[in-house]
Write a protein that binds this DNA or RNA. Structure first.
Length: 633
RNA sequence: GCGUCCGUAGCUCAAUUGGAUAGAGCAUCGGUCUUCGGAACCGAGGGUUGCAGGUUCAAGUCCUGCCGGGCGUACCA
């Protein structure tokens, strides 16, 4: 490092040694200092508590021609200051230029733009040094959070009595991605799969097993038989005329067993009361049910720290109800026990007239147990939006109750991470042609099958001699499953999404395959040219960003940490997929226009460094999203 | 009925939570290049953000009212 470095570069490197540079948070600190001075100078009174909110208005610019970051708070402050927005902006700019350190990272802002935007442009030298730091950093320049929290994430949570279907995938995939992202951010994450293993659906299976079970099929394939029984008994219990009209077998059984619904409830109550026969049957069913879902999780590459299902909390339910009644929060109503909350038409029911407990009861007991054993700062529930009212009432009740530890409960952040419904291409909830919900396993199979065809189409062009059967299968599995996961993650989670294999398996656009391809392409450079990446990381002490496309790519690279911050702020993984897509786009533009291996000297060193970082960050980003990568495809 | 979410290009989706000229992909049309992985890159056309008002320096975003839809709404989860 020497004459290649210009300006104050070495100083910056020294200051951030072994660290990383987050330009956005640096910019916010500079703005905060400027605003404090503005207030001290009497231009406009700003309370210290207002500063964080105001500096949050420092964001990435909409268009690179305005610079890299811009602050918009001058416009908001203008009225209070009794001045024109542009004048307030000019006042802020003059203070900004007096803040120590700003000019090392940013070019000095000169004058307000438009109605009063204050634009900052990162100095290329500072950006180059940030890349050098990131290159040597195993965290790729992303600093961990200052204050780590303990966060419980509750996701997937299928009913084990019935086969997993397409409706379970968003919760599973979004929850898993959030767990990985927040853990990388530095939080202490506890994942917990709150299985539905104790509710009415088991009453259905119990009744079905006793009256309608095909013992031979059960012996051979227990989960398939239990699944059949669940679907059949559910039809009988619901007794919807239109369903029965389409199913002669069910209609005939209806005549034989007219009171199925009541009988199912009775079986559920007996289970909950500890009836030996039902409990022993439940214990017999569970291993097969668990095995079934585990197979799917292993294929999805998803695992949990804990799998504490509803049944786990069963011993605590009576005490929860007693506690709430004792505190006067719950009371008897129409034979049931209910918590009435202002603003809701229906109360939160915690015990049915027949004595059985409900999922609200279990959920309350679960919060209490988690507080007692894990002392979390946050509990996140990744559950579809149809349950939003349940969670509002649940959270409100938990806060009123105190869960046996009012101080902790008060501080606990409870969040319902809602997501939309998966629709078919006809705009209706995703179903098979016959109208059944789509089984998750067959969905994964089809995704992998289609991926295999696409991969085979491209193979001939690229591989001398072809790939082994194992290679092909493994690539198809990674690409197919990745496509399905990415489709769920890349969408704003609050909106409904339309399921389309054709769209999610496209090779261009914001898809997993495009991202996976980008990784394979970047990393192919090193393997084909025989360049050791460790050497690149160790020996690159200076990079020089000259071409605008080098600079644009470098900026995307150092913004990786900002994207992760934004994901956490609103629990939205699609902000990470968007950042990955932007990065891949910047890389394509860079790579298409500028030679890397054919470049020489400092230029080659710089470009190799950018390639290495691009590959690592794309790979890390996909890993945090729970999406696999391949070395060739 | 009440509550809640939504309505953005032909299609599928974004839009930094009130910021600058509403952006991508697909599809359509055009261009680049004697492939460092062309599954590439560059560009064009395509919009009254459901409708009508309002709030303000600034509205796809907030408020009011309509139109159209999803979901929830007492003993399933």
């Amino acid at each position: 490092m020497s004459d290649q470095v210009s300006g104050e570069g070495p100083q910056i490197l020294e200051r951030h040694k072994g660290q990383s540079v987050n330009f956005r948070s640096q910019a916010r600190q500079f703005f905060a200092a400027a605003l404090e001075r503005l207030s001290a100078d009497g231009v406009v009174a700003i309370g210290p508590e207002e500063i964080p909110g105001l500096v949050e208005q420092v964001r990435e610019t909409a268009d690179a021609k305005f610079g890299d970051y811009s602050g918009t708070m001058a416009m908001a402050l203008a009225k209070r200051a009794g001045q024109k927005p542009r004048d307030v902006a000019a006042e802020i700019i003059s203070r900004l230029n007096g803040v120590p350190g700003l000019s090392e990272l940013f070019e000095k802002p000169t004058e307000p733009v438009g109605p009063g935007f204050i634009n900052l442009r990162v100095r290329s030298e500072a950006l180059a040094h940030a890349i050098v730091l990131a290159l040597a950093d195993s965290r790729m320049g992303v600093a961990p959070v200052d204050i780590p929290q303990t966060i419980v994430i509750d996701y997937s949570s299928p009913n084990v009595a019935k086969p997993m279907h397409v409706g379970h995938i968003r919760s599973t995939v979004i929850g898993d991605a959030l767990a990985k992202i927040l853990a990388f951010r530095g939080h202490s994450i506890i994942t917990d799969n709150h299985l539905g293993d104790w509710g009415t659906q088991f009453g259905m299976i119990l009744w079905g097993f006793k009256h309608l079970c095909d013992k031979e099929r059960f012996a051979v394939a227990p989960t398939a038989e239990l699944g059949r029984l669940y679907r059949l008994v559910r039809k009988l219990a619901d007794a919807k005329p239109e369903e029965l009209a389409e199913d002669p077998q069910a209609a005939a059984l209806m005549a034989t067993y007219p009171a199925v619904a009541a009988a199912v409830m009775a079986e559920t109550v007996k289970l909950h009361e500890g009836d030996p026969e039902n409990v022993s049957l439940w214990e017999r069913f569970m291993p097969a049910c668990r095995e079934e879902i585990e197979r799917i999780y292993s294929r999805l590459g998803v695992s949990f720290d804990h799998t504490l299902g509803e049944s786990f909390y069963q011993p605590h339910l009576a005490a929860v109800v007693d506690d709430l009644v004792g505190m006067g929060l719950a009371k008897k109503s129409r034979g049931a026990t209910a918590v009435f909350l202002a603003g809701y038409e229906a109360p939160l029911l915690i015990r049915k007239a027949d004595g059985a407990f409900l999922y609200a009861t279990t959920d309350l007991a679960t919060i209490q147990w988690r507080i007692e054993h894990w002392q979390p700062d946050q509990i996140l529930y990744v559950v579809d939006h149809r349950q939003s009212q349940h969670f509002e009432q649940l959270f409100a009740t938990a806060k009123l109750w105190g869960c046996g530890n009012p101080e902790r409960t008060e501080r606990l952040k409870l969040v319902h991470i809602a997501f939309g419904t998966v629709l078919g291409e006809d705009g209706r909830p995703f179903k098979t042609r016959a109208g059944d919900t789509v089984g998750l396993e067959s969905l994964l199979d089809e995704g992998v099958e289609r991926a295999a065809q696409i991969v085979a189409n491209g193979e001939g062009d690229r591989s001398a001699g072809g790939w082994s059967e194992t290679d092909r299968r493994q690539i198809a599995e990674t690409v197919g499953i990745g496509a399905i996961k990415y489709a769920d993650l890349s969408q704003n989670r609050t909106t409904d999404s339309t399921f389309s294999f054709d769209k999610m398996l496209q090779l261009t656009g914001n898809t997993a395959a495009y991202m996976q391809y980008a990784v394979a392409r970047v990393e192919g450079i090193f393997s084909r040219a025989g360049i050791d990446r460790e050497t690149v990381r160790r020996e690159t002490t200076v990079v020089h960003l000259v071409d605008p496309r080098e600079r644009a790519l470098a900026l995307e690279l150092v913004r990786f940490g900002e994207a992760l911050e934004d994901v956490e702020a609103d629990y939205r993984p699609n902000l990470l997929t968007a950042a990955m897509y932007d990065l891949a786009g910047s890389y394509s533009t860079f790579y298409d226009a500028l030679p890397v291996l054919k470049a020489e000297g400092q230029t080659r060193v710089t470009r190799l460094a950018l390639c290495d970082m691009t590959g690592r960050i794309l790979r890390k980003g996909l890993e945090l999203l729970g999406i696999g990568t391949v070395t060739k495809m």
